[in-house]
Design a protein around this nucleic acid. Sequence first.
DNA 1: GCCAACGTTGGC
DNA 2: GCCAACGTTGGC
Length: 136
Amino acid sequence: MNYWLIKSEPFKYSFDQLLKEKKTFWEGVRNYAARNNLRAMKKGDLLLFYHSNEGKDIVGIAKVVGEAYQDPTTDDTNWSVVDVAPVKKLKNPVTLEKIKADKRLDQMALVKLARLSVQPVKKAEFDVIMELAGEQ
DNA sequence: GCCAACGTTGGC
DNA sequence: GCCAACGTTGGC
């Protein structure tokens, strides 16, 4: 299983909205690196849900429930979406500040490739995030 | 609101 | 195919 981090500006699509809807397709990715990551996702992979701009924190965990297919919001076959569903909201959201302060996370794409909207996360990094969030 | 980082576009 | 110009993202 693989781990990923997806970013969203909360006023566009927040984790709470995903909790309400139970499922969504992750659309709007218009960057090839991010697209390639979307296409590499497998059913069951876990996603850290990060709120950019407002909050700047990882607020929840989601999972891939449907692998990449043509983005229904465009005819351009360059772009794909995946289906995602919420797993749980974190008790303690993990802020960017905390992530930057933790040496174990200084290689995270979130820190090094700040602009990439869909990024791979290592299992070790995922575990550290869970620890910081106070999750088991 | 500014600006650094970085991806994309287009002229040559 | 290079690279300058430009646009966008996102932290501050």
